[in-house]
Nucleic acid binder design. Structure first.
Length: 480
DNA sequence: TTACATT
């Protein structure tokens, strides 16, 4: 039969009753059927143009059921606009085959915007579902079985970790939006898989934009922005903002240069938005609060603080040489936080002691349902420090007052957000192998170096403030 | 006490 109904109802469907086999009458032969009956209620109030209404094909209906039996069955899931049982043109008999005793089949009718030609086809983002909270034991076939009742599955992929183990989630791509919507309505939250921590998640897979947002948020999380305390007060907030500004500027200029796809422009806009929010001290709001907070002030920080890498930027390659625009330093510190010692009276901000702790965030970024992220955004390949020592004049920074535990890698990490770091070197006492608390960072362009100075000179770490200056030119002060 | 690519 055919049934036209609203798709808005949240499916409380017991999915088990909707499992299917691939059989059933051919919906294509339906043109001449009788037995049309309208839904209950005042028909005039039912918007027939409801874009969310879809026509479903129901197969495997027991022969002895007719419209009046079937209607209540489906009303549970939404308003029914139209319900038609397909009957044989000549005999008036049910189209269902005799002796059919299988679970009924429910899927959007073939007439429902099933893309035939590629130009009419709906974008994959509207047909593709993300399925979370699966049992890790469930295979592609299991998932298919769960979803095939609602339409033609073009693609079904379980997300797996490097070890091949399921992450408990999957993508299911249908041929049409309507099919996907039907599956959401019926399956989302409908059941809890054994071993899953909550009920089945069925939703449209992220669009590019949403993915970008996620990436932004993840980036923000890695930068420690998830700690609301750090934002309005600590100099770390300023650092994070500097990163944001820098990255926004970088991404924007890259996008404008036509080197990247429009996503970059969007991402840049998001960054700027986030940075702007930070100015108002509202930063935490759009961020995803992930796990806990920072190491409480006063607690000894882990031995080797690692500044998280700004994955978004590092992931981009082929940057134009002048991509690193200079962020407006004034704007960065518009909230009154200024890293310069002279303007930062609170010399011993205890929050700074949590610095390393904040950076240490390494827990799972998202609950299992978001496992797709790690697949969608593989970590950029680790940066291999270049052999070359020094950049062109004006590109080399001298940094003093580094934390004792900072090594080359940490130094690089700290300055990576401001541009392409071509080398980083912390000086080590050759006798003790201890850091001498100073080092050099070289960028591939002077603008990055200037930006880094603006953002990092005076940046407080623990009880110290970084000194970041251009390295003295080799021939400076040389008498002749 | 503030050091500039170390042997």
């Amino acid at each position: 039969m055919y049934i036209k109904m609203a798709t808005l109802a949240n499916g409380q469907a017991d999915n088990a009753s909707l499992s299917t086999n691939g059989l059933g009458g051919s919906p294509g032969s339906a043109g001449h059927m009788n037995g049309l009956s309208h839904s209950p209620g005042n028909p005039s109030t039912i918007p027939m143009k409801d874009h969310d209404a879809i026509k479903l094909f129901i197969g495997q209906i027991p022969r002895n059921l007719d419209e009046k039996d079937l209607k209540p069955l489906f009303e549970e899931f939404g308003k029914i606009y139209e319900l038609t049982v397909l009957k044989d043109r000549f005999t008036g008999m049910h189209k269902a085959l005799p002796g059919m005793n299988r679970p009924i089949q429910v899927k959007p009718a073939d007439s429902e915007s099933r893309g035939g030609s590629s130009c009419l086809r709906q974008p994959p983002s509207h047909r593709k579902l993300f399925v979370g909270m699966l049992n890790k034991q469930q295979s592609e076939d299991d998932v298919r079985r769960l979803f095939e009742a609602f339409g033609n599955i073009e693609e079904c992929t379980i997300l797996r970790g490097p070890d091949g183990n399921s992450k408990g989630c999957a993508f299911v791509k249908y041929s049409s939006h309507a099919e996907a919507q039907a599956a959401i309505n019926a399956l989302h939250g409908s059941q809890t898989m054994p071993g899953a921590s909550s009920s089945l998640v069925v939703k449209f897979a992220d669009t590019d934009k949403e993915r970008t947002m996620r990436r932004m948020q993840q980036m923000a999380g890695q930068m420690g922005m998830f700690n609301p305390m750090a934002i309005p007060f600590g100099a770390y907030g300023a650092y994070a903002q500097a990163l944001m500004q820098q990255q926004a500027a970088l991404m924007a200029s890259v996008a404008q240069g036509g080197y990247l796809n429009p996503m970059a422009a969007f991402a840049a806009a998001q960054m700027q938005q986030m940075a702007a929010l930070n100015m108002n001290g509202l930063a935490a709001a759009p961020m995803t609060p992930t796990s806990g907070g920072s190491t409480p002030p006063g607690i000894t920080a882990p031995a080797v603080p690692s500044i998280p890498s700004p994955i978004g930027v590092n992931g981009f390659t082929g940057l134009p040489p002048q991509a690193n625009g200079q962020p407006a330093a004034e704007a960065v510190f518009a909230n009154g936080i200024h890293p310069y010692p002279a303007q930062s009276p609170t010399a011993a901000d205890p929050l700074q002691q949590a610095y390393a702790g904040v950076q240490q965030y390494a827990g799972p970024a998202y609950p299992a349902a978001y496992g797709q992220i790690s697949q969608a955004f593989p970590q950029p390949p680790p940066m291999i420090p270049q052999q070359q020592r020094e950049g062109p004049e004006g590109c080399n920074l001298f940094i003093y007052h580094l934390p004792q535990e900072f090594g080359d890698a940490e130094l690089m990490q700290m300055f990576l957000p401001f541009g392409n770091v071509i080398s980083s070197k912390v000086f080590v006492d050759r006798a003790t192998n201890q850091s001498k608390c100073f080092g050099f960072v070289s960028f591939d362009n002077p603008a990055s170096a200037q930006t880094a100075i603006q953002a990092m000179n005076g940046f407080q770490i623990g009880m110290k403030r970084l000194k970041v200056q251009l390295k003295r030119p080799k021939d400076a002060n040389r008498p002749y």
